[in-house]
Design a protein around this nucleic acid. Sequence first.
RNA 1: GCCGGAGUGGCGGAAUUGGUAUACGCACACGACUCAAAAUCGUGCGGGGAAACCCAUGAGAGUUCAAGUCUCUCCUCCGGCACCA
Length: 1022
Amino acid sequence: MKSYDHKRIEKKWQSYWEKKKLNVAKVNSKKKKFYGLIEFPYPSGDGLHVGHIRSNTAMDIIARKRRAEGNEVLYPIGWDAFGLPTENYAIKTGIQPAIVTKKNTDTFRRQLKALGFSFDWSREINTTDPEYYKWTQWIFLKFLEKGLAYKKKMAINWCPKDKTGLANEEVVDGCCERCGTPVEKREKEQWMLAITKYADRLDRDLDPKRVLIGTRNSAKVKMIKACFAGVVGISLITFDDIPPVDDSKLVEGDDFLENAKKKSEFYFKATGIPTISTDHILWIDKWPENKGFMVHLRKHANPSSERATDEEVVVFLKNFLKGVGGESKANFHYGIAYTDENGTFVREEVPANYILQDKVQAKSYWPGYPTEALLKDSKTGVFKADQSDDVRYVRIAMMFKKHFVPRMLGDKTAIDYLEKIRIQQKNWIGKSHGINITYPIDGFKKTVTIFTTRPDTNFGATFIALAPDGAFVKENLEHFPNKKEVSVYIEQVNKRTDIERLAEGRKKTGVFTGLYAVNSLNNRKMPMYVADFVLGGVGTGALVGVPGHDMRDFEFAQEMKLEIVRVVVGPDGDVSPITKKEQVQEDTGTMINSEFLNGTDIHEATKKIMEYMEEKGYGKKITTFKLRDWIFSRQRYWGEPIPVIHCQKCGAVAVPEKDLPVKLPNVKNYLPTDTGESPLAVIENWVNVKCPKCKGPAKRETDTMPNWAGSSWYYLRYADSKNKREFASAKALKYWTPVDWYNGGMEHTTLHLLYSRFWHKFLFDLKLVPTSEPYLKRTSHGLILGEGGAKMSKSVGNVVNPDTLIEQFGADTLRLYEMFMGPFDQHIAWSTESMIGPRRFLEKVWRLFEKTQNVNSKSQKRKRSKITNSKLETLLHKTIKKVGDDIEATRFNTAVSSMMILANEMDKEEEVSIKNYEIFLRLLAPFTPHITDELWHMLSHKKSIHLESWPSFDLLIMTSAFENLIIQINGKVRGRLSVEADISEEEAKAKILMLPEITKWLDGKEIKKIIYVKGRIVNIVL
RNA sequence: GCCGGAGUGGCGGAAUUGGUAUACGCACACGACUCAAAAUCGUGCGGGGAAACCCAUGAGAGUUCAAGUCUCUCCUCCGGCACCA
């Protein structure tokens, strides 16, 4: 046998798969679809980064597993090729960005193909291709048409180095996200996209639906939770998660279906949260006289007690079965009821979960195996409780998924984002509920409106603070009694940058306007200040100061020597005047000095006073967001031209659809200008056009779109990438979208991910896409850092080159190492040294082939006739389950390690059966596609291993006949004992108490109790 | 400051969710094969101790028959937001 030589086999299989079109997604497939997506790379001049490989391999494994599971899989690839690095390179070298892009994509394509990713290359896209950006522009025109794209003169973030405006999302710590230069404010006309119109939906649709588990029985809670495993978009909560519920008045009857209904209705009424409840009953068929018979198991098993124990149930059933005859079937019937937010309930019965059968047909009882199942062993006649929840709940879980989950979700597209992604997006959108309060101003014709989330403390309000750039100041400055001082102050403020202000430690400054607002609650006159800690863009650009209960207001009050009133008393009981910042009671406590609010909790008081103020007409409840509209224009060359023509007569006119795409013209000089105009502005024969409306002289818009435009919808184009008439056909979109699983970087959570959700919802409203969310599941990978833990960069010199690694170790080893190196979602430092481990493993897998070749027919036969499963087979089936589960949970590192364990065990055997070896290869194939296909063909298969189905595990083989009991004395391990899996508790205890290593500890001591956990542990307490 | 996440050998990291702490891999040491080396295989590898045993999961307390896992207090690191009213 030849030795493992990756160079000989990898190229060969890559071209074989390509020739056989193994990875091309079929157009009219009858199969269930799976759409796996990775963020399409920006083809930089540096070539492929090992970080790309981590993400791509992970999704490749998932895609290959899905194919093996019988899905039609779309795993596409393309290029997000507009952007600054290419443009800057063009400026330096004078080479056209289009040519640079072509060169870079060629390199990336070659590198990606060398790694054996199962991309469907036939759908490759490129955002800089006019055939592609035609549709980016087309979607922009839709925004324009619906009034969601608009032009506005405003102060924007300007990067003086890149010489372009930036979106809020692109400014990090006051600096340009891309180049780190401190950003400046510039007043400029900008194209904006009204993402704030979608803020509420972008926030709300991130939340799963909350459903209460309406039972206090921990076994049932556990069961329902287990049944909902893998269900997306529903968050199950228990009584622990909500304020106490009094259910002493809940009365249950004898009918299990009715009980389930009663419970769900009762708890819904008590909590207002949609509630699911279950009840069950034991049902004996064919007895007596072929009539059904219901048994309240817990009651019948021990009538004198409230709840019989499991053991009592077993004894009861054993006797019961004797009485009714061996052929009887007994099963649990489950009644499940769900009461939704409207108070209407639905209920279903889950029938026929066979739990007792005399003639045990191994395969037949598994699918419907219920909770609290009891199984009679055909040989010994011993009943035993089964432990495997996955199997026990299968049928009930199916019932939940089929009948209840759709009802719970309604028309909501349920999404499953990694929790930290969800939270980060919510933070960024920054939804908050509050109230706009309007105060009259003493001796002034106008009123002032402020926004607050804490109106409960309004009796303690002592001042008003206005933003220097806020609307109130702009409109009324002329009439301020102290307008001179205010103007000087505003001038000072405008001179300072954000960074300077941060450096000063946010010292509060301000100036009195000479005006007093009047608090309608208590007629207090509140001096009005202009202060730069108030931001023009937040709320109404004005706030009411409650220095006793807001740290920032307190600091300002101290600076300005303003009055401080206490209206909340905290848990410390301090009611003295507030003079120190330690006394500022912010988010807990009870109201005082607040008239009708006195004595109420602050949260209760907030609700109460909001109602009160609305009723009195002092204020109006409102929801605000931190999210700002998206600044959509860039003053650079290498982006999609914004398809608008400015006409002196008609104003901004959309380029007619038939004239799309507006192609980027070739220019000589890509250099951005200091005037804030795009380099396109100087190309006269491109800029000067006729107005599409009046045919008069007009000029093209010379700003281009940001990098995020093309990537906001690219996953839709993959569905139908060659379509010339539409961005994608409705039919293709209906089949392929939404994306089932999207993996990408954390850095895109508030940029790309938010933007594309926005575009998608917009297209959904136009009925151009079938769902309201683009991605069902979003995971993210951790960064790969350089050796030593610093970020990989050319300047540090710690960049690793995939080409070298593929040459030296092979693509399979590189893929496997990146999956094995550590937890997928965590950052990790590169270590070329550690690659040897995965390589040795593959060599071992290669050598194992020989152990399958000298198995003579006799021993193959002998193996098959064995009754008990060999240890290896048990391990094999456990590994099948583990690898599958781990892939789904993106625990690739432990998936690999479990396959290493299996290979080590196989290696210890004299010979390995072809059957087992083949299963092993099929498990490994998604990770290392080349070596496994080679070995597969060496085993005389004619077709590719990647056309094989995903191995299934057999629970009977997985469950070992023997279990290792750990024996503890007072919690310390003192021994272990291998016992038969179905040994009874008494037998096990008896055996253990005879072991010499145990008896020596018991000498002369009294055993207080013995804890017995089946199949796991025995703890003797002395 | 607020919101997340994490802290386990020399290193990357496991631990069926409360049940054998340190799986798997790297590095290291010794042995076998070899003239030799590489590769491969085998053995060892948290600390203390001759051993029996004892002590160890950032620190300290608590709940429990049993805690890396749950609860509280604190420390450190990473990520996000940050004068958001």
